[in-house]
Design a protein around this nucleic acid. Structure first.
Lengths: 329, 329
DNA sequence: CTGAAAGCGCTAACAG
DNA sequence: CTGTTAGCGCTTTCAG
């Protein structure tokens, strides 16, 4: 059906080796052969089968990307950055999402490994203790973590703990003393834990007792009533720090619907820096991360690693504080 | 380094054929051999090289997905749906984005073809006349278009023209007579053209003269001043229909910043049904599409095609009208 | 139930 | 500069 290098060789009246050379090292082929091959390629509509090439070369030019979800624009933006950089480095992207589930992480990693991707860009639940990451190291498969932050692994992230502390300090500076933190399940995300640490740091530095984190499912579409009760009841906090912008948006919606005024009755601070937050009313204040950059830089570093064989260190990118109507009038 | 089927065979004291069978058709292998092979696999940490399998089978289990951008959540949500359905059907996703550029469309299609994906899910600029799509048909590579809507091709989409007309009719019902349409470049998107047609249909049905479309780059981060001038000047429209939600959000922001009240001074209607629009103030009214479903259904149909060899017809999914504060108080 | 051998499409020695 | 050949890892006849 579809033409192979053999057909081209026959059509052009040369050997398959010459065709291969004409394709890969044109300078080592006579002009006559070169043009005969080109003509044959055009006539047959030949396109090189990358599978054959990959098997032979033991390299695929594929980068495996594993992210929790694309419904959170944080990861979509990051993936956009990865894809951009991958294109520049002439790699292709194989995508898998895990929805914060360990079984899907495992399945994805296994699949990517079997597909013999040249390298991986991953966000995992817990970078520090992760049997599969250890396995990647054993196999010396180059990989970069994004969003995860962990001394022992190559990561591209912001300094989650410091960033969270700085964000909470903004709330403290505005006079808040009763500040709650809402987070996705700590057990499903080391970043969530680090951000909680940062919250604790800032509270303690101000001589306050940090509250327990109020956990909620990362992918839930709304707040559980119990949580809404705590945020609107008599003992409610005057400010809420949310572990990510998606949660912050859910909280804002629910509290506004309950008739609370933001920021007068309660201030809201997010984490991520989603663009869309700026368009909300009030505009969402947030600790911002350079999401597309995180992806792009991770891909660039992975490319360097793949090129040089040299494992690269982690990269901490600067975070920002975006002030907005949700924390001050 | 990494174990192959040969190593497993040696370790287990059987032939490579038996190993292969133990992997693929365990029932055709004796229990003794089976367990010897399993032991060897575990001992060596063997994982089957899919590249070898793919070359042999002339099937990759890969689905090529080509979308304009992931910065627009419409496509991220769609991709999420695709990925979900691909997982269920045991396919993997190879992702490329085009940023509405013809050269990148071409490059992506070429790459996917060379990588021998089993099928493709695509959004192209213009489905009707598209040389590469014709090429796919010639090669009988199964593909499904998403968002594009075109009689001659297999598409999963809403009825763009009817949906747009229905949306504009909502504005007409509220007494608007001077309704402008803002759109991404018509030349880069057949959907944009169809939606403009729908706008024209509704206007004419009301005895009004449709305006020329006001074009703006799909990926621009803000409105050009010239356009802002037209929307705020003395002859400004009382309602604006935007070809997608992202544009609508930009327009809302700009006009609010200029001191216009929405919807009293100007009503805004979007197209896409992004969730986030509900959280804006005022909430964005929009013509909604089932984005994740569009992706998932496209993948399911592609799977059917791949399974049966039977090309499947297009699927038109229902759209919705989401009323919101941006068109009525 | 098992093994030997061919071959998927391609590249890279190795000879000439 | 060019052709012959081996072989990447795997599945699948075809014999036994």
């Amino acid at each position: 059906m579809v033409a192979t290098i053999k057909d081209v060789a026959q059509q052009a009246g040369v050997s398959i080796a010459t065709v291969s050379r004409a394709l890969n090292t044109p300078d080592r082929v006579s002009l006559a052969a070169q043009s005969a091959v080109q003509a044959a390629i055009a006539a047959l509509g030949f396109r090189p089968n990358l599978i054959g090439r990959q098997l032979r070369a033991d390299k695929t030019g594929l980068i495996g990307v594993m992210l929790p979800t694309l419904s959170n624009p944080v990861f979509a933006e990051c993936l956009q950055g990865i894809e951009q950089a991958a294109l520049a480095a002439n790699y292709r992207v194989l995508l898998m999402t895990t929805h914060y589930r360990a079984d899907r992480e495992q399945h994805a990693l296994e699949t990517l490994l079997n597909q013999r991707v040249d390298g991986m860009i991953l966000t995992v639940a817990h970078a520090a203790q992760h049997a599969w990451l250890d396995r990647l190291e054993d196999l010396s498969v180059p990989y970069m973590l994004v969003y995860n932050q962990c001394d022992a692994r190559p990561c591209v992230s912001v300094d989650n703990r410091a960033a969270a502390a700085q964000g909470v300090t903004e709330l403290l500076l505005r006079g808040h003393r009763h500040i709650a933190m809402i987070s996705g399940q700590l057990q499903a995300s080391d970043r969530a834990q680090q951000r909680y640490q940062g919250y604790c740091d800032a509270m303690r530095a101000a001589g306050l007792v940090p509250g327990e984190p109020l956990e909620i499912d990362f992918e839930s579409a709304d707040l559980p009533p119990e949580l809404v009760g705590r945020l609107t009841g008599p003992d409610r906090p005057t400010a809420v720090f949310c572990g990510n912008d998606r949660l912050a948006i859910l909280v804002m919606r629910r509290l506004l619907a309950r008739g609370l005024r933001i920021p007068q009755d309660v201030a809201i601070l997010g984490f991520d820096g989603l663009e869309i937050g700026e368009l909300l009313a009030p505009a969402l204040a947030t600790v911002s991360q350079p999401n597309a950059d995180i992806g792009a830089r991770a891909m660039e570093r992975l490319h360097g690693w793949l090129d040089s064989g040299q494992r690269l260190a982690s990269l901490v990118l600067p975070h920002g504080i975006r002030r907005g109507g949700s924390i001050h009038a």
